[in-house]
Design a protein around this nucleic acid. Structure first.
Lengths: 190, 190
DNA sequence: AGTAAAAGTGACACTTGTGTCATTTTGTCG
DNA sequence: CGACAAAATGACACAAGTGTCACTTTTACT
């Protein structure tokens, strides 16, 4: 009964993603977004009360997509294979840690935003739970050193994504190097 | 022949540091800074044309302080001791990587800023050079795995600082864990 | 005590982003 | 066709940061 929208949610989220990575949370504005979408700024307010609402909505979507893939980790046989799967997955979704970091800066500007942020936290806990059982497998298989805190292991794995590759080491060599160090360290055994 | 300043460069830089970490580059304003310094905003413009000039000036200072300490790495005997020294140093200066990251977002708003940014790049290269010789020592001592790219090793060591310690693992346990993983990995040997 | 040089002030004009809303456009359905 | 509901628009009032500058205040020095 009405006319079609000039943009899809997919387009919107994709652009949001790109602009967030380019300009960061503060630099991200409805002005830029509207211009890129070739739509007036006022239009965006028809769908979201403010940028925080849009961003949290987008992040929920992004997180759920990531969680779907993460759940498949349990299809892998054994701790070593799961580790390989996890690192490869993270390097396919390289922006997740950045988005999480951005998410920490979002203020509670209205109830919807607050609700979304709570939901994001729940997803983060769910993610942690998924990975907790992966770590437990490692401990059960006696493959993991006992004294290492779980949160350190997970944090370190996730953080490897953000190491800047200034010298453009080829991607495969880079990822292999990371796996090697995380699993067996940079030192040669004697 | 004139009156004293109401604030010292030290105070200014310390506050700049704190505000940058709290609000990030975009959120850092002369308004907030002036208020905290209990000085009018106009005063700040007497010393810096804009915030980019102040921030780059501050970063140059911070980098040079860090470089001084970094140079002492060569006083350590052997690769393992140097590795220990490096990681401990980084964890004493936890904000260096964050500052470097913030530095990447600064636009060239005037010639002074441009000059400062170039100088920062040189310092970064100098830092790299210092650490390159540390890595070379590791290779010469046959302690380092041959196939690992230098930039990956250095990047990974520096990045460990930014792993969020959500569960408040005690600091010493945290740092020991990081050293352990970087040097020998998270896997038990069989 | 007088003064000049530097420090500091605050008002002004400007820019950019925000949120709102009365109005216009568009396309589908009866 | 025509009407009506959703989509889109653009102008308005507001908020916050920026950079400037004529002016005032302070104080070390003569």
């Amino acid at each position: 009964m009405a006319r079609d929208r000039k943009f899809s949610t997919d387009e919107l989220f994709q652009l949001t993603h790109q602009l967030l990575l380019t300009y960061g949370y503060e630099g991200f504005t409805f002005s830029i977004l509207a211009e890129q979408l070739e739509v007036s700024r006022g239009t965006l307010y028809k769908y979201y009360e403010n940028k925080d609402e849009l961003i949290t909505e987008f992040m929920l979507y992004e997180m759920s997509q990531f969680m779907l893939k993460l759940k498949d980790i349990h299809a892998q046989e054994g701790f070593e294979a799961q580790t390989e799967y996890l690192i490869d997955l993270i390097f396919k979704q390289t922006t997740i840690p950045e988005l999480i970091e951005i998410g920490r800066h979002i203020p509670n500007t209205n109830e919807k935003v607050e609700k979304n942020k709570k939901q994001l936290d729940e997803q983060r806990m769910d993610m942690y739970y998924q990975l907790e059982s992966y770590i437990q497998l490692g401990r059960r298989e006696q493959r993991l050193k006992k004294n290492l805190p779980t949160s350190l292991i997970l944090g370190l794995i996730f953080q490897t994504i953000t190491i800047p590759n200034h010298f453009n080491v080829p991607r495969s060599e880079w990822i292999e190097g990371i796996k090697e160090i995380i699993c067996h360290g940079m030192f040669l055994q004697n």
